[in-house]
Design a protein around this nucleic acid. Structure first.
Lengths: 234, 234
DNA sequence: AATTGTGAAACACTTCACAGCC
DNA sequence: GGCTGTGAAGTGTTTCACAATT
């Protein structure tokens, strides 16, 4: 992805495009926010391996980020560690979950139940996550009424109603390019504040709405750059 | 993803994590490389709409990046425009394709033909010619021998042989987390230089190998941050 | 008059280095 | 002695602003 779209920013493109911080927001860089889930995953693994205490060096070894980076990222939110000792794994997991808003269930909507949308839904739903798909929409009458891992596919017309009723603020777009902009508009209209967009288009969204784009084609094209014959380097 | 893994860098995580430039490489920031495909897509759309000439402002409107950013990114590779006029669309498309290495076909391998891998393969094979899946591997005997859009799924044992024979340098990993590190090792061993990784693990790869991670869970978790109730802002 | 190409300035992020604390 | 937390330094990226060019 190019990196990351952000509040008050025009849409960015690609998977995880890097992005500047929200204009009005606090002083935590977006790049740091994007690392927190990586730390969380590493911590969960370490905790499962009976590491009650972890150091920033332990996390560095697991995640590939430097220990200073990790300490600095965590310090944006407070001092969670003990000098000379490290971090209590369970405590840090809880803090990170709370910071990310994962301490309560985050309901999300998926729009588009084609091959990709279906694969994403299965993946998400079979791992019973804190961030979980609770509504799926498609405009194909043949698909409506079918279900994926127990979640029934609803007609696109019900998007606004269902999203409002469930208080959904985060949505995944997995529709064809030509339909994506309209879907985004309707999602925002219904109250969605953050969108994970798999459609190969640059979405135009109002300020304050966060868009993260993931586009297989763009990813492969930029990676292709690194596989070209390289001009002699030395 | 998050940001971007790079040559000589430890693996980064998340979709398109931003990343520092290759240590030995020229002076083009990776973030710029990641934007080029976005420009290419916008240019292709504009060309299809009969814009023979485009300005950096036109591209800015389509992509959400600033016109200065676009001019600077293009200037890393030379002066392709005409002052007072703009860029000849067809010429710029050709130059970008050449820079990215898309002027010749880039063959890629897909490892893992589960739900996600299959969806990715269908998507890639039904659209793209420049960066195209030419080999698919899976270790499920029931899946081997079946085909996706005409590409036959081969047994994982043949990975090394096929990748070497086809001169493949770019691969997509869509296997379960527990198998990903071993697959990555084998890919690199076979000559792969860049990996697009969908498995939820931080891959350890030798210096010089580029890894781009895309992890649905991490993306959703970091987006969740932006949907929390926000502290009063002023 | 319009638009590129680019140094310089501004800004953002990472790494260094070490004081502080257990 | 070991590890966190953090100012300061260093590095990388974006934006500014304008000369150059058509």
């Amino acid at each position: 992805m190019m990196v990351t779209a952000h509040r008050d920013e025009k849409a960015k493109t690609g998977a995880a495009a890097p992005g500047p911080a929200a204009s009005g927001s606090g002083r935590v860089p977006d790049v740091a926010i994007r690392r927190l889930p990586v730390y969380l995953r590493a911590l969960t693994e370490l905790y499962a391996e009976d590491h009650e205490i972890v150091s920033s060096a332990d996390l560095a070894a697991r995640t590939g980020y430097s220990s200073e980076q990790i300490r600095k990222d965590l310090a944006y939110f407070g001092a969670f560690g003990t000098r000379g000792v490290g971090y209590r794994t369970a405590v840090l997991i809880e803090r990170l979950r709370s910071i990310l808003g994962l301490d309560r269930q985050v309901p999300i909507a998926l729009v588009g139940a084609g091959h990709l949308g279906t694969a994403l839904a299965r993946y998400n739903l079979t791992r019973h996550r804190d961030v979980r798909i609770v509504a799926i929409f498609d405009n194909d009458p043949a698909r409506v009424g079918q279900s994926i891992e127990g979640v029934v596919i609803e007609p696109a017309e019900r998007m606004d109603e269902v999203i409002r009723a469930a208080g959904i603020r985060l949505a995944v777009i997995a529709v064809p390019a030509h339909a994506a902009q309209d879907v985004a508009r309707r999602l925002v209209e219904a109250g969605v504040e953050a969108i994970l967009n798999f459609a190969p288009v640059t979405l135009q969204v109002p300020p304050g709405i966060v868009v993260q784009n993931i586009d297989l084609t763009l990813e492969l094209q930029s990676l292709a750059y690194y596989t070209r014959e390289r001009p002699a380097t030395g």
